[in-house]
Design a binder for these strands. Structure first.
Lengths: 204, 204
DNA sequence: TGTACATCAGTGAACGCGCGTTCACTGATGTAC
DNA sequence: TGTACATCAGTGAACGCGCGTTCACTGATGTAC
């Protein structure tokens, strides 16, 4: 049974004690919607309810309000991206620099193929105090750890690993933001070259 | 006479033949609004009209619709930023690398102090065909020219100037986007260091 | 010089719409005795 | 085993709101004769 279809498709309600499953269904539907709209403005309570196949009021059993829904979606997407990057770094090739490069590729690939999901990652959660670190910092840490492993394996960096990670991560993000503002095929083709140059720049 | 005040302040209408002046007033009011909201969602026809001190219908004499208004605002802000960067590069210090660094500083400073204006720069204009270059490319070109001047003055780069410009610009943009998602004082204090590292990375 | 008319800058009221949120509810499934 | 009741998952209708856009208009300033 598919829930992604519009109106006519009836949803079978969850069984007793399984009400929490709807939370995941809502997030999945919102995620699907985000990939079509590629813009969080279109992510409305009513729109998500339509995409999930439920009544708008049903959202409120699982999220306090629209802001909480977007926060939940952000956490959902951050986790998806983190898993992808970690998997990309698990390659059996022993060279830690190659693995860091693979992680960078996974990051850029996610941004290129899921622009809507990517954009939401940089939202500041609404409930969090201004002092709390943005969730994207988690992603930055992944790159930092990879560079530290490369250093531990004897590769020399031109900057301390934490600073090099900031350069690599911000350049990748900036590049993808630029690509999203101007997604030409020519630009997409140059992405691998960009990644290679970026890694080469921080290596000694 | 100030137009920035709310309702009670009456606006004196422009004289015959000077109707075009309202266009600028609208863009200025929208720009002011953008710096308060730091979010383009809040930029509504009615909101801009309120900030300008005119009736919503009056916007339509100068902009076809809301999308055209946002396009006009984008062009307005791009020009402001370009002027700042060009002025920063006009320093009397002869060293072209110092001048490039100053331009980069001006760029980051604009992003840090005008987050709302900065964010709108990466909007894709609505009327433009998908093949048209995004207006931010203009800014990228400024950095490329600076690096080419440095090369012409005998400084060696680790990458061709056009590729180095992409790295420098995207890293700066990514860094500022990260800062906006997570604007801590600690992060702001490290900005000069980041800029220095970035310039050093592309130099041989 | 007067006067009829055109043009200009801008308005006020109304339209239909989709939104976030609330509230009393329904019907199925579990539990206590 | 039956039965009264509690709890669960989820609904339908309604609310008030601000939005983009349209339309016929107003009053001041210019121009033709």
């Amino acid at each position: 049974v598919s829930n992604q279809a519009a109106g006519s498709m009836a949803r079978t309600r969850n069984r007793w004690g399984e009400g929490e499953r709807l939370r995941t269904e809502i997030l999945d539907a919102a995620s699907r919607l985000l990939s079509e709209l590629d813009d969080e403005d279109g992510l409305t309570i009513r729109g998500v309810a339509r995409a999930t196949g439920i009544a708008p009021a049903s959202i409120y059993s699982h999220f306090a309000d629209r802001a909480a829904l977007l926060d939940g979606l952000l956490a959902h997407e951050i986790q998806r991206l983190r898993e992808r990057i970690e998997r990309a770094g698990d390659g059996d090739g022993a060279d830690p620099v190659d693995r860091a490069r693979e992680q960078l590729r996974a990051y850029c690939d996610f941004a290129a193929t899921h622009p809507g999901h990517y954009r939401i990652l940089f939202r500041r959660p609404s409930e969090a105090p201004p002092s709390a670190p943005s969730p994207v910092i988690e992603i930055l840490s992944l790159f930092q750890r990879s560079l530290e492993r490369a250093e531990a394996a004897g590769r020399r960096l031109r900057l301390p690993a934490d600073r090099a990670a900031v350069v690599v991560f911000t350049a990748a993000h900036g590049r993808m933001a630029l690509y999203q503002a101007n997604p030409t095929e020519r630009s997409a083709n140059k992405l691998p070259q960009f990644i290679d140059e970026l890694v080469a720049l921080v290596l000694d």
